[in-house]
């Protein structure tokens, strides 16, 4: 049984605007999955569905065999503990009026997780490489890369099984991207990531498995190496051809 199982998932705003159509995928613990697609391919909507922030029009998402039920308060509490997320824009994903300590501690407090909050926050901050005095400072005192580290610390502080990462490096400059990718790679030993991105190179670095999305469907999926060296679907080929390469 897969850790996350998505079956025949659909999402539409009304009869005409279908964002996700009959999408199925599965995810194993310990094997990062990259979901690649262009803007408008439905990546972010899929992520919202996976986070239980939106209701699917059809199909289901299950975690360890249990169907994701956003109306079941107790189930959602357990689900939130196991599934966390990092967002694209580190400037708007941190509350400017909260000290870093409170930002990172939010999942622990909200989910009433019975741990030493100060210790858990300090551990998460160390794990993402934040300076020791960060806790009492505010987001505006940090650079984009540092802010993304704070967001990652918040995502891992409750020790989830899965972290969904939505375009986590696209708002950062190139040298910072490399540091964040290295960090995610280091963290992959204890957390499974679903990396959603338009950047194939990033996904290739982090994820052994890849799924290519086009217009709300997965058109090709499998081991990353295999898909990239031998793309079958024309959309994958086009996507690969349009990826700019650094010399």
């Amino acid at each position: 049984m897969s850790f996350i199982q998505v079956e025949n998932l659909s999402f539409r705003y009304d009869q005409t605007r279908t964002i996700i159509e009959d999408l199925s995928l599965s995810l194993e613990k310990g094997r990062n999955l990259g979901i690649v697609g262009e803007s408008g391919s439905g990546k972010t909507t899929l992520l919202r569905l996976l986070l239980g922030l939106a209701q699917p029009s059809a199909g289901s998402i299950s975690i360890d065999g249990q169907v994701l039920d956003t109306k079941n308060w107790q189930f959602m509490r357990d689900f939130r503990r196991r599934v966390q997320a990092v967002f694209q824009d580190p400037y708007s994903s941190l509350d400017p009026r909260q000290a870093i300590f409170d930002i990172v501690a939010e999942p622990l407090r909200a989910l009433k997780i019975d741990v030493d909050v100060a210790k858990a926050v300090a551990e998460a901050a160390t794990a993402v490489g934040l300076p020791a005095d960060a806790a009492q400072r505010y987001p505006h005192e940090f650079s984009g890369g540092q802010r993304q580290r704070i967001a990652i610390a918040r995502a891992i502080v409750a020790r989830p099984d899965l972290v969904l990462a939505d375009e986590v490096v696209s708002a950062l400059d190139l040298s910072t991207r490399i540091l964040i990718v290295d960090l995610l790679k280091a963290l992959s030993t204890s957390v499974t990531f679903v990396v959603v991105s338009h950047d194939i190179a990033l996904v290739a670095l982090l994820c052994p498995d890849i799924a290519i999305m086009e217009k709300g469907r997965i058109v090709e999926s499998g081991p990353t190496e295999h898909v990239l060296s031998n793309p079958v679907h024309p959309y994958t080929r086009r996507l690969l051809a349009s990826t700019p390469r650094l010399p």
């Binding site: 986070l51 922030l53 959602m76 509490r77 939130r80 503990r81 599934v83 966390q84 997320a85 967002f87 694209q88 824009d89 708007s92 994903s93 941190l94 509350d95 009026r97 909260q98 939010e106 999942p107 909200a110 989910l111 967001a151 918040r154």
Partner: peptide, 22 residues
């Protein structure tokens, strides 16, 4: 409309606590 509200929901915060904390 800010991402930190989505982040708070993902972190498990309830709407009342989102209103008072964020």
């Amino acid at each position: 409309s800010m991402d930190y509200i989505v982040a708070a929901r993902v972190a498990g915060s309830s709407w009342p606590s989102i209103v008072f904390v964020h």
